[in-house]
Design a protein around this nucleic acid. Structure first.
Ligand SMILES: [Mn+2]
Ligand SMILES: [Mn+2]
Ligand SMILES: [Zn+2]
Ligand SMILES: [Zn+2]
Lengths: 143, 143
DNA sequence: TCTCTAAATGAAAATGATTATCATTTATAT
DNA sequence: ATATAAATGATAATCATTTTCATTTAGAGA
């Protein structure tokens, strides 16, 4: 049930955002790639065909798409966000420290832990970040 | 079994690092505070007594201490690292989105999940990041 | 204690990602 | 077709971190 380019565009309009050529281009780039892309990645991918699009606009478009949960935002370790076409179910990531590949996993429900923490610490939990780093099979074999 | 100022200094020397006044000052600041401090926090704390210490040196010292696992490095969500005197046991963090307070918790063992993921994805897991965000009791009451 | 040298320091500039500004353009409701 | 609020993009600003490099210094050895 992967979101399509059209579907994302429709959702944008539905939420009152204008459907500009620049936004179409960003949506196109992100639906076309299975990878997690940084704003700069998208800028590069798109710049040949559409030299008139600004990096700022890419940031802004990604921010909107993420806020509508149409794409999935990833804060890998230190610096740099990246985005990928949103899988509707909540999931987490494993990131290869060698090649940067990102693998999703969803086979884990964190809510019991949340409830326990909330009880023990008095926090009202709003969100969480669960990420693993490691070396993917391929990188391990090449070494 | 909290590390002492002397203990950290000794460990530094043991690993071949010189024990400079600047490093003593950074170690002193970090052992004196129960909080997670950013490099800039430490710079401010220290600057009255030691106006001659550079922020660069604080960054460098913290990097060394973290690499020796004498202090604990925290990448909170988006931008900005912070450090605290290293608790020897592995633990995770809950961060208040309103006031920035950080609370540790260690009542959770993530290794079964690691083993499962390793089996399912072929990754050799090297590390992980588990962080919760929420609103602490105090901030919740003030609102 | 004196000397020597690799290691450490810090001022300053560079970097890199992200955000703010603001004059100009444009998507769309009417 | 028009009006207008929203969107764009060039540019500059931020902010954390890193690099550079000339100068200082901790600590090993004479
Ligand atoms: Mn994902
Ligand atoms: Mn901690
Ligand atoms: Zn890999
Ligand atoms: Zn709080």
């Amino acid at each position: 049930m992967r979101l399509t380019e059209k579907g994302i565009a429709a959702a944008l309009k539905h939420h009152g955002y204008k459907l500009t050529p620049q936004r179409r281009v960003v949506i196109g780039a992100i639906t076309a790639s299975p990878d997690h892309l940084t704003p700069a990645d998208i800028y590069r991918k798109v710049h040949k065909e559409h030299p008139n699009i600004g990096l700022t606009t890419i940031y802004r478009t990604l921010e909107i798409l993420a806020s509508l949960e149409l794409i999935c935002e990833l804060h890998a370790g230190g610096s740099g966000r990246s985005y990928t076409i949103g899988a509707p179910e909540h999931h987490h990531h494993i990131i290869c420290s060698s090649c940067g590949a990102v693998v999703d996993f969803s086979s884990y429900d964190i809510s019991p832990l949340e409830a326990k923490l909330s009880r023990e610490t008095g926090f009202e939990i709003e969100g969480h970040l669960l990420e693993f780093t490691g070396r993917c099979r391929r990188c391990r074999q090449n070494a």
